[in-house]
């Protein structure tokens, strides 16, 4: 794994009025790694991710993504990242191909590139026959895999995935993680939030957020050793129990 830092955050905070959603978090993410971002509901994961992807203005602290400053160069960051939100965000009333074409197009990809890569992506997803079907007609698992493919279609340096496998069956979840591995092997840094602790085991490194702060950050093996437990589940429970903030 490289030591080339693609995301750095130093005391990054976000306050909404008197409520501190993200409380001075600091961490680095290295090129090509799968970085798991764990935490209970309401711990501040999504807010942190939104700050890094340029959707939310930090209140204080420093951060850079793909070498660009989150305060001033947020539009440059956007050219270099992919983002898949908790909400499913493809257009249901457009077909599979139209969605791909639209998102690739607004990232400035050429028609030639779009055409060739669409064929490859659809083939990989086994969706070639469904290319002209409306997205709303696809089952959820396929939609999520498609949304991920769209998020990395423009070949970003980093992709942010916010609970990408929520509500998806175990088989599809496994397939989804295979896709994540493929993307990571292709050099894309993966920044992923999840509630599934088996998925946490798949990550290179994991951070656990409690009440807006990062309480632990290490490889899954090291975390289990540190806390003297057998599974990531236990690590998470040990840390998350300390939370005073109620889940939303």
């Amino acid at each position: 794994m490289s030591t080339d830092r693609v995301i750095t955050a130093e005391h990054l905070s976000k306050r909404f009025g008197s409520f501190t959603a993200v409380d001075a978090i600091s961490f680095d993410v290295y090129r090509g790694e799968i970085f798991g971002f764990l935490g209970a509901n309401g711990a501040g994961k999504t807010t942190a991710m939104r700050m890094l992807s340029g959707l939310s203005m930090p209140t204080s602290g420093k951060a850079s993504v793909a070498g660009f400053d989150v305060y001033k160069e947020n539009e440059k960051i956007k050219q270099n990242i992919g983002y898949m939100s908790q909400k499913f965000s493809l257009y249901e009333d457009l077909t599979v191909k139209e969605n791909i074409r639209f998102y690739a197009g607004i990232y400035g990809k050429s028609n030639q590139f779009i055409k060739e890569k669409t064929a490859v992506v659809l083939d990989r997803l086994h969706l070639t026959a469904e290319g002209d079907k409306l997205v709303k007609s696809l089952p959820l698992g396929w939609k999520q895999k498609l949304a991920f493919s769209v998020a990395i279609f423009h070949e970003p340096k980093i992709v942010f995935l916010d609970e990408p496998t929520g509500g998806v069956d175990p088989v599809t979840r496994r397939e989804f993680w295979n896709m994540i591995y493929q993307a990571a092997n292709a050099g894309i840094t993966i920044f992923v939030t999840t509630h599934y602790m088996d998925e946490a085991e798949y990550c290179n490194r994991v951070s656990i957020m409690v009440d807006g702060r990062i309480d632990a950050l290490d490889t899954p093996q090291q975390l289990k050793k540190t806390y003297g437990v057998a599974t990531m589940d236990d690590v998470f429970l040990k840390l998350a129990r300390k939370a005073v903030r109620s889940a939303d």
């Binding site: 992807s53 959707l55 539009e75 956007k78 990242i81 939100s85 909400k87 493809l90 990232y107």
Partner: peptide, 13 residues
Amino acid sequence: EIGTIEQINVTPV
């Protein structure tokens, strides 16, 4: 409402 505007906001559009 459906969240696609956020997806657009995260692009360089």
